[in-house]
């Protein structure tokens, strides 16, 4: 299969990345060559193979439902590009 420009713009929309119109052609070319490479996998019959979902022979641990930190609002807000007192500020969402 091959990816056309419209498909790539759609995927970019899903990924929330704006794509420069001037770069769409080279991006299409690169992605198609990568997908051609990836599609070698179709040579293999994997009908009877279980997918590998974890490399570890252990199930995920669960921890006690206990609070281990807190009162770190300032630390959390410290790196915010835009804030107002104790809030993150984003462009207006509701009119």
């Amino acid at each position: 299969m091959s990816l056309d420009k419209e498909k790539i713009k759609h995927v970019a929309k899903l990924a929330r990345i704006s794509v420069d119109e001037a770069k769409v052609d080279s991006l299409t070319k690169d992605l198609n060559s990568i997908f051609k490479f990836i599609e070698q996998l179709n040579e293999l019959n994997t009908d009877k193979v279980e997918p590998l979902t974890s490399i570890l022979n252990q199930s995920l641990r669960s921890r006690k439902d206990e609070i281990s930190d807190g009162k770190i609002r300032e630390k959390i807000l410290k790196n915010s590009p835009k804030k107002n007192e104790e809030f993150f500020v984003v462009p207006k969402v509701v009119e």
């Binding site: 996998l41 179709n42 293999l44 994997t46 193979v49 279980e50 997918p51 590998l52 979902t53 490399i55």
Partner: peptide, 10 residues
């Protein structure tokens, strides 16, 4: 598909 091939590689 990739997860299945990953199983084969392992």
């Amino acid at each position: 598909k990739a997860q299945k091939v990953r199983q084969l590689i392992k």
